[in-house]
Nucleic acid binder design. Structure first.
Lengths: 140, 140
DNA sequence: TATTGTTATACTCTATAACTATA
DNA sequence: TATAGTTATAGAGTATAACAATA
């Protein structure tokens, strides 16, 4: 991949992330990072805070705050760890499942509404790249 | 594009943006947003602060700070506006051109090194999507 | 009076360091 | 003593509101 494409991709990621953040600003909705955490717990099942911190590349104290916020919104609950009294497991609530599967809610969000305005070919390109970008973001 | 793909794309964007930000933390290098501004001035030529703020979807006071920082790093300079005494134009310096065309510098950065580890097919998918994502990020 | 840019201030997100509890 | 999580504190990035200068 040439330099110019990389520079353009980086700018696009940064700008998209900012615009996604602005969509929720002020509202009482999960922030993009919080949505990412909900998504991860859904994909991977119950997880400990430190597992989540490593996966999302934030420090443990930051994950503490994110979990507190999601718990306060009723989207996550804590479950005692089966063998280790220091740890606990984070689980999605029914409210989170509802939020996530509520397609109307999702479709009203910025990203979907903008993707819908792309051409079919462009949408296919983004769809094909989505999984790759997800793997890229996970790389050690 | 189905809901799950959108959710995964959103998480990937948020996570990639965080990891890009962590790459420059503490160093005396342009932040991702600053690089985006440098790239935009390169693509569009000399621009006023308010044009840049609109393009990057930040508020004018935020752009003031970004321009100050880039000017402090010697990557941008101000040029009087030809017809309007209130405005000024922002231009890239030779140092910025050097920074941007220094492929070694670029290639040492996180994004390129990780993209290089993708398979050929994956790299093609990301390359194809890069321009689309850039357009997506620009949409009104 | 309207617009451009800046200053002052505050909020959000995330980090580091120090602390508590359990292994 | 080592590890998981939390509390306290700080910094980066960006926002809103109020102001100054020019159109």
């Amino acid at each position: 991949m040439d330099q110019e494409t990389v520079a353009s991709l980086r700018s696009a990621i940064v700008l998209l992330a900012r615009r996604l953040r602005q969509q929720v600003a002020g509202h009482d909705a999960p922030t993009p990072t919080e949505m990412a955490v909900l998504g991860r717990v859904g994909r991977c099942g119950p997880m400990t805070p430190s597992q989540l911190a490593r996966a999302e590349h934030v420090q443990p104290p930051s994950m503490t705050k994110i979990i507190e916020s999601l718990e306060g919104q009723g989207l996550l609950r804590r479950q005692p760890h089966p063998t280790d009294g220091r740890q606990y497991l984070v689980v999605r609530t029914q409210a989170a499942e509802a939020l996530i599967s509520a397609s109307r809610q999702m479709r009203s969000q910025w990203l979907v509404s903008h993707i819908d305005r792309l051409s079919v070919a462009d949408r296919q390109a983004v769809t094909a790249a989505a999984a790759v970008l997800a793997r890229l973001a996970e790389m050690p």
